[in-house]
Nucleic acid binder design. Structure first.
Length: 153
DNA sequence: GCCAACGTTGGC
DNA sequence: GCCAACGTTGGC
């Protein structure tokens, strides 16, 4: 089992949206490294940290799980979609997605600011300078430490 | 295959 | 809105 962090802009799709939908095809990934993670490394059941980016308080807002194997992202063939890719062919799809299932919303978000303050999280990809990858693997010890930062119920 | 130009991401 | 960082594109 592997652990992951997946970014989403809450204006586009937030943890609350996922809570309503329960399960969502993670469409729109247009980066080869992120695609390869989904294709080669992700497996159903893998835990996911749901991260809000490009917002007032970026950080981890909830927990989810990978809910399918990778399969072709239909938006790449949809001319009306922002994610349309004219160069991708149906017989050889360039972009893939996985379904993501809602697990729960954190009692309080663990902000990027808070993550940066944790010496034990040094080396996490999300904290590395210039990292823009929308899907990153997370070490188990980092995942567990992050959960330990959640305020008690 | 190099690399400059360009586009995008995402924190601030 | 700015801009640093980084990925992609395309001319050569």
């Amino acid at each position: 089992m592997r652990y992951w962090l997946m970014k989403s802009e809450p204006d586009e799709f937030s943890i609350d949206d996922l809570a309503r939908r329960k399960r969502e095809p993670w469409s729109g990934v247009r980066n080869y490294q992120a695609r390869n993670f989904m294709r080669d490394r992700m497996a159903p059941g893998d835990p996911v940290l749901f991260y809000h980016s490009s917002c007032a308080a970026p950080g981890i807002y909830g927990l989810a799980r990978v809910a399918s194997a990778a399969y072709p992202d239909p938006t790449q063939f949809d001319r009306g979609s922002d994610y349309y890719d004219a160069a991708s062919r149906r017989d050889e799809p360039r972009w893939l997605l996985v379904d993501v299932a809602y697990e729960r919303t954190l009692r309080a978000p663990i902000t990027l600011e808070a993550l940066k303050r944790e010496p034990k999280l040094a080396g996490m990809l999300i904290l590395e300078r210039g990292n823009r990858l929308s899907i990153t693997p997370v070490e188990r010890r980092h995942y567990e430490h992050i959960l330990s930062l959640e305020p008690a119920a």
